[in-house]
Write a protein that binds this DNA or RNA. Sequence first.
RNA 1: CGGGAUGUAGUUCAGUCCGGUUAGAAUGCCUGGUUUGGGACCAGGAGGUCGUUGGUUCGAAUCCAGCCAUCCCGACCA
Length: 493
Amino acid sequence: MSKGITSRAENYSEWYNDLVLKGGLADYSAVRGCMVIKPYGFTLWENMRDILDKKFKETGHVNAYFPLFVPKSLFEAEETNAEGFAKECAVVTHYRLKTDPENKGKLIIDPEAKLEEELVVRPTSEAIIWNTYKKWIQSYRDLPILVNQWANVVRWEMRTRLFLRTAEFLWQEGHTAHATKSEAVEETVQMINVYADFVENYMAIPVIKGVKSANERFAGAEDTYTIEALMQDGKALQSGTSHFLGQNFAKAFDVKFVNKENNEEYVWATSWGVSTRLIGALIMAHSDDEGLIIPPKIAPHQVVIIPFLSKNVEETQSMIDKANELKQNLSKLGIRSIVDSDETKRPGFKFAEYELKGIPLRVVIGPRDLANGVVEIARRDTKEKSTFPIESLQETIVGLLDEIQNNLFAKAKRFRDSHITEVDDFETFQKVLEEKGGFISAHWDGTPETEDKIKELTKATIRCIPLGNKKEEGKCVFTGKSSQERVLFARAY
RNA sequence: CGGGAUGUAGUUCAGUCCGGUUAGAAUGCCUGGUUUGGGACCAGGAGGUCGUUGGUUCGAAUCCAGCCAUCCCGACCA
């Protein structure tokens, strides 16, 4: 057991908090529900962001930036969407403070400075964006519009958790406008595939792609596509969503275009997003009781090189030189590494520290090894330590990083696959949920009422109706009414 | 937002019930030395408006009230 980290078995929530705080990813702040993302955590986010951004550009999207504030009148234009967010909006009502005449040195809101119209701090940007798109779109030649923005949004959550649910968080939101329904649907599906590809192949987290039930659908969407991941405690985490918005926003904001036949039509829309919540998913999918485990492809540092120091100054210097040389060689191969030659800390301390931080590979260079022309390499995922010859070190490291990446995904997938349980009666449903957790694949009569009832009794919701789901005659696990396919239930974050 | 708990050195905590010299410990930090193949040791040192505002009192970390923040449970949550 590592020093100061609560074990998963002891208290899963505390374990999670310990990893975020002690792993140096983030910290609490003086603002309720808002966190500080520390450099190590932000580097991780930057790596994720850069990969996604490249994928967005490859699929024809461009970045732009829209305001943080949304006038209330715009916000309420699309009613379903506005109502969905109404309960968790921060609202700006004044634009000036002044010195309190009765208490010098203190500031009060200047009652004279009340805004004519309140500004909603965006919980999402559909309103301000569609208000803008109205000006951009006249003809079918203006379409499609494929815009993404990297931004912060605010949702005044009652109960917050680092990365998983904070009042302010960072995300990207794509907002596209299309001439036809089929094109918009295609875009929606394309982006959920981009997300799935990213989360599986870079974050090494297996996901299930699916469609949300009416209850869980984004307010204002016709269809919500989701990728659902499974955490080690058996709870599901929605990791990304892509919405087919139909013509709802076009109608609310009166966005029409003239088609080739010179007829006016409403445009078709999509929106899609992933957020810093993905970091929460990453932690809970891979890490262990010794600390974080971060997949090589997105790790801030992929390799840490630790030269062993001795009182022999010359010998020590040759270790450090060797370490720096290796770092440079790795850098040429695009591998991110750091050298820790801090002589005030002993090796054992460093080992524990970098295990806590989840650095995939640790290379130790010592006099004994160097004499034999080898170094010791430890893998964070399996904790295996072995020695490898120095002359082929770069190749070895490249190979090991690749192995770790694959191993993490395979391990998470084995766990996920073994936690999808087919269930045909409600008693078993409850039992599996309680004792095993994970996804439960069961028949459902398709009504929101049944889903609500199941949620009330078990806290489990329908996570998704998997894409490409096989059709199968069956009876609803709760009502016994006939059903044509299974859906996935789980307790979720 | 309801119930419970917490807030004292960078960190973890003792002291608070029962108010009273200069608020302690461990760890971390700094200096010097000895060490260095899995969280080293010795010696010396620095570090605190006791979350915050107000009240009670001759006197408040300690009692009372408000506020702020964090955790747990619940409600809420694409």
